[in-house]
Write a protein that binds this DNA or RNA. Structure first.
Length: 616
RNA sequence: GGGGUCGUAGUUCAGUUGGUUAGAACGCCAGCCUGUCACGUUGGAGGUCGCGGGUUCGAGCCCCGUCGGCCCCGCCA
């Protein structure tokens, strides 16, 4: 018996033809003298009917089948009676009248029902991950995994057409101690030495530019041994690309071009030919985030100027940048710097002057997670009420309402503190409120390129500057002099915090979908950068010697980006969970429940590698 | 590393103030049923209440610890 059709393709036109379908029993409805079977494969579901009268042998076999049995049926496609059609099925106009039925394989009773009718009451994720092969049979996951395959195919198509060369880089390479934790792989031949899995092919892709390939791309697996999140797994896939002799705008055009091609091909979605651009500074100021979700407004509004004259101690301390506002441990010298300066900002929630005490308390708890000490509120109801009324007085409250642009019926949610904390707290609160108030239009795709990221971030613990993107990112031409001053004059070191980089992110619907930069191609600036990062020439050579050597031999100006395949697919599939777009994901504690990895290895294997495991 | 939340039948859940024999639906098993598509119907089996300890005359329920799923903070150049 040879399959002639899938279970998703038969329509009324096929009526009268003989077909053979193969698939899994999704559902059986037994009426004694005849039995309906919903037969499922990756394409869809077709109802087949087995009658005792016309196919006694097949009918007898049908008696003994159960969900997830694998069967083949041969029979005629017949039109269903007027009242017996099923509009919910694409194949619902027809059914297959079975003449022959073959049980290709039986199946144990599944540990969970693949789809509970009419609800989203799926089994616990633990069970579904353990039996991932069963969960993957669900149409929703089948669809997501196929969408991902289409997206990857579209990406290849885009770059192939534009003359990019797909180059594979090694999975086994050398550990570099900075950045994310590496997964390491022991070497047998060099017992006691280790490879590291790539966190990204960053250096290697730059070397393809030095090697003269001009345009490189790769669908690259990346590994980072860090804690997981709803959108983060320890291994994930990136579209990685790099090009020579380009400026930032030329890279932006490829970002736009690629995403636009993928969304058009996969989802039939038309994104703007040119995406809006916004500097990092503007994004932080207006949205408190470097990846703002632009599907809704509710921008952050600065109330600092209105509060500069206040006696209210917490605000006064924050706004004046006096000692009281500094976190414990921060020195007075640092207080002179810009970063000790705090601010007071707010968002306006339209129509929610009716927030209850419980609700504002919940939101306060929410912002505290981001380091905010408290959340103040003003409710512009029939009467104006506010947690700040006593300390600021009516007049000041009215002034704040005016600055915030709040109208009768609105609620104003206020956070004060260090700039970074205010941004983190209000940026997150903005998303949280939008979610709660259902302000997000899920049919929208709001794209943005965020530009001019800071070159460095200040690490409070070590009081050192670390690369915000990676140590090969080029500073902005405008900031080059400041960069040089900051590196060469120890008293001006803090200026590093103000140096902007030619680094950028692509953001869709609040997800960072891609990021990249123009790289440093001159060894002098690269050396300067290592110095800024506190790497002595010896240390730099130890870690990146081969790369520094490579830079000596005629490096073209170059830049590129990497795009997260999973995050892109999450947006295409409309899911908020990365596991929904990966065939075999790991749990939040980085385990594979299906194969029970990671696991122990034989003593003999360890011996060969020269490894002794310390039992604690 | 920290926080939140959940864990009761194969699955999804209910379970009152701590009180008799822990329930429902779906699934499963055995029948009946000529048009279902969440088929209907009759009957049946199925429980270490995650695990360990404690309080109590008595614990699914209270307390402590622990394990696991999910989410968040830190972390993720």
């Amino acid at each position: 018996m040879e399959r002639t059709h899938t279970c998703g393709e038969l329509r009324a036109e096929a009526v009268g033809t003989q077909v053979v379908l193969m698939g899994w029993v999704a559902k059986k409805r037994d009426f004694g003298v005849f039995t309906f079977i919903d037969l499922r494969d990756r394409d869809g579901v077709t109802q087949v009917v087995v009658s005792e009268e016309t196919a006694a042998e097949a009918h007898a076999k049908a008696k003994n089948i159960r969900g997830e049995f694998v069967i083949a049926v041969k029979g005629e496609v017949v039109r269903r009676d007027e009242g017996a059609r099923n509009a919910k099925l694409s194949t619902g106009e027809i059914e297959v009248k079975v003449a022959e039925l073959l049980v290709l394989n039986d199946a144990a009773v599944p540990p969970f029902q693949l789809e509970v009718a009419g609800s989203e009451n799926l089994a616990d994720e633990y069970t579904r991950l353990k039996y991932r092969y069963l969960d993957l049979r669900r149409p929703a996951l089948q669809h997501n995994i196929r969408t991902r395959a289409k997206a990857v195919a579209a990406i290849r198509e885009y770059f192939d057409d534009r003359g990019f060369i797909e180059i594979e880089t090694p999975i086994l390479l050398k550990s570099t101690p900075e950045g994310a934790r590496d997964f390491i792989v022991p070497s047998r031949i060099h017992a006691g030495k280790f490879f590291a899995l790539p966190q990204s092919p960053q250096i290697l892709k730059q070397i393809t530019m030095i090697a003269g390939f001009d345009k490189y791309y790769q669908i690259a697996r990346c590994f980072r041994d860090e804690d997981l999140r709803a959108d983060r797994q320890p291994e994930f896939t990136q579209l990685d690309m790099e090009m020579s002799f380009v400026n930032r705008e030329q890279v932006y055009r490829e970002i736009e071009g690629m995403f636009n091609h993928v969304t058009r091909k996969v989802g039939g979605i038309e994104l703007p030919a040119e995406w809006p651009r916004m500097t990092y500074a503007e994004a932080m100021r207006r949205y408190g985030s470097d990846k703002p979700d632009l599907r809704f407004g509710m921008e952050l509004i600065d109330l600092s100027d209105d509060l500069r004259d206040t006696d209210f101690a917490p605000f006064a301390a924050i706004l004046s940048g006096t000692r009281a506002s500094l976190p414990a441990g921060e020195s007075e010298e640092q207080a002179g710097g810009l970063r000790s300066q705090g601010e007071v900002k707010c968002i306006v929630v339209k129509g929610r002057a009716d927030y209850s005490r419980k609700q504002t308390d919940e939101l306060q708890e929410f912002v505290k997670r981001y380091g905010a000490g408290a959340m103040a509120w003003i409710k512009v109801g029939d009467e104006v009420t506010s947690s700040l009324l006593k300390v600021l007085g009516e007049e000041k409250i009215d002034q704040l309402i005016a600055t915030a642009g709040a109208e009768r019926g609105d609620a104003v949610l206020i956070v004060a503190g260090k700039k970074s904390v205010v941004a983190a707290a209000l940026g997150a609160l903005r998303n949280e409120v939008a979610r709660r108030e259902d302000l997000i239009d899920r049919s929208k795709f709001e794209c943005l390129i965020v530009t001019e990221f800071p070159m460095f971030e200040h690490d409070e613990e070590t009081d050192a500057y670390v690369a915000a993107h990676h140590p090969f990112t080029s500073p902005m031409d405008e900031d080059l002099e400041m960069f040089k001053t900051a590196v060469n004059d120890p008293s001006q070191h803090h200026l590093l915090g103000n140096v902007r980089a030619k680094a950028y992110d692509a953001v869709i619907n609040g997800y960072e979908c891609a990021g990249g930069s123009i790289r440093i191609h001159q060894k002098e600036i690269q050396a300067l950068n290592f110095k800024a990062l506190g790497l002595t020439p010896e240390k730099a050579r130890e870690r990146f010697g081969f790369f520094l050597d490579a830079l000596e031999y005629g490096t073209p100006p170059h830049g590129g980006f990497a795009a997260g395949i999973e995050r892109t697919c999450m947006i295409l599939c409309g899911t908020e969970n990365i596991r929904d777009v990966m065939a075999f994901p790991k749990t939040a504690s980085a385990q594979d429940l299906m194969m029970d990895a990671p696991g122990d290895v034989d003593e003999a294997q360890l011996d060969e590698l020269g490894i002794i495991v310390r039992n604690s």
